[in-house]
Design a protein around this nucleic acid. Structure first.
Length: 375
RNA sequence: GGAGAGGUGGCCGAGUGGUUUAAGGCGCCGGUCUUGAAAACCGGUGUACGGUUAAUCCGUACCGUGGGUUCGAAUCCCUCCCUCUCCGCCA
């Protein structure tokens, strides 16, 4: 959620930054500015009316204490009128408030000033590329799908029998490999990089999903469980890790807080049928080791660089050639102010593919979930 | 799933319709005293939003959540959530 005070103070700057993003959010931002002004005017009016009502109530109290029934009766008539005046406007104010809130929850974060401008993936900037690490093959390498099935460690046919398309079943050394990589990552991040390991719930509430930005806009990407109340399967451990502190006020010296978690992740991947979906890529369920920092505003960009280095460290340990992209303003995710994608080299395709995404969300999620810190 | 108890400031805890502007205590911050510290004493100490000033100050809302009753609600009524105790069920 954007800082409405900041938007109010620099409307032109906010609008210019919003225009750099993909999606046509500029009109929404303009509506927000209008509604905000109207809301504040109405709020001032109603607070004035409430103040008068409270004043008259006090008069009744004083009259009753003095046993002055006549004065009390007169004041009560006045109080009734004051009450009606407040009541008449409260409904409208609540509607304005909720409308404004809905709009604020539906607009994405503003790109950081340092982010390169552009309209889509083609404008992303390569900031690092490991060219030397790429191995040349004298034959056409098979992809992981073919290699895995040949070795009997990946079984997509059985996965499909169990769950339909876009699921994987790991078997034997395949399952062991998955588990080993998870353990390598967790051990590296906890023992060497200073992260605290968490194993969170995988089912969370709608409120939790709203805190990190999945709801209200992206419900179709989630698996919703038809319980009462409805629950959602997490699409990433970012959701529970970040929401651990929803509504909390942290002390300055508690920051930064660094967490890592291995969890399965569940995504509907609606609208991506047919593209980039072979084998383990873009499955409905996959395993991920997540990194999350909570950091002070002034240190958050430096934190992003460190977090990215921690993520890169795993690729270095594994010896996988990769490159780093700085996403341009038009290609960033909803909550992000700045994003780096790590992409690994796929010899079978001769391309880099995204393996990891590191974002600084600024105060965007903190505001949505009301997480604060005290200096 | 059933029965009971409970949810009040950073913490403990009083408060069953109106000087509550949430008592009192603990903690914390500042001060006095002291060579220094402790103790004692004095003062201060929630959050958000809106307005306002040189510093300030004013208003509104908030006692788990959301409604309702009332001129007025921490207090009365309803809803939901959560915690604890006991019982039942449990692939």
């Amino acid at each position: 959620m954007l800082d409405i005070k900041l938007v109010r103070a620099n409307p032109e700057k906010a609008k210019a930054a919003m225009a750099e993003r993909s999606g046509n959010y500029l009109p929404v931002l303009e509506t927000i500015l209008e509604k905000d002004a109207a809301y504040r005017a109405a709020l001032a009016e109603i607070e004035d009316l409430r103040s008068k009502r409270n004043e008259v109530s006090k008069k009744i109290q004083v009259a009753k204490a003095a046993k002055d029934e006549a004065a009390a009766q007169a004041a009560m008539a006045e109080a009734n009128a004051a009450k009606e005046a407040v009541k008449a406007r409260e409904e409208g104010l609540a509607a304005m408030d909720s409308e404004l809130n809905t709009l604020l929850l539906s607009v994405p974060n503003l790109p950081d000033e340092s982010v390169c401008k552009g309209g889509g993936a083609k404008d992303n900037k390569v900031v690092f590329e490991d060219v030397a690490g790429r191995r040349e093959f004298s034959f056409k390498p098979l992809d992981h799908h073919a290699v895995g099935e040949r070795l009997g460690i990946l079984d997509f046919e059985t996965a499909t029998k169990l769950s339909g398309s876009r699921f994987a079943l790991l078997k034997g050394q395949g399952a062991r490999l998955e588990r080993s990589i998870i353990q390598l990552m967790l051990d590296t991040h906890t023992l060497a990089n200073g992260y605290t390991e968490i194993f969170p719930p995988l089912l969370v509430t709608a409120e939790t999903m709203t805190g990190t930005g999945q709801l209200p806009k992206f419900e179709e990407d989630l698996y919703k469980v038809a319980s009462v109340p409805p629950m959602y399967l997490i699409p990433t451990a970012e959701v529970p890790l970040t929401n651990m502190f929803r509504g909390d006020t942290l002390k300055e010296d508690e920051l930064p807080k660094k967490f890592t978690a291995y969890t399965p992740c569940f995504r509907q991947e609606a609208g991506s049928y047919g593209k980039d979906t072979r084998g383990l890529i873009r499955n409905h369920q996959f395993n991920k080791v997540e990194l999350v920092w909570l950091e002070k505003p002034e240190d958050s960009m430096a934190a992003l660089e460190k977090l990215r280095a921690d993520a890169e460290g795993i690729l270095k340990i594994l010896g996988i050639p990769y490159r780093v992209l700085e996403l341009c303003s038009g290609d960033m995710g909803f909550s992000s102010a700045k994003t780096y994608d790590l992409e690994v080299w796929m010899p079978s395709e001769g391309v880099f593919r995204e393996i990891s995404s590191c974002s600084n969300c600024g105060d965007f999620q903190a505001r949505r979930m009301n997480t604060r810190f005290k200096r």
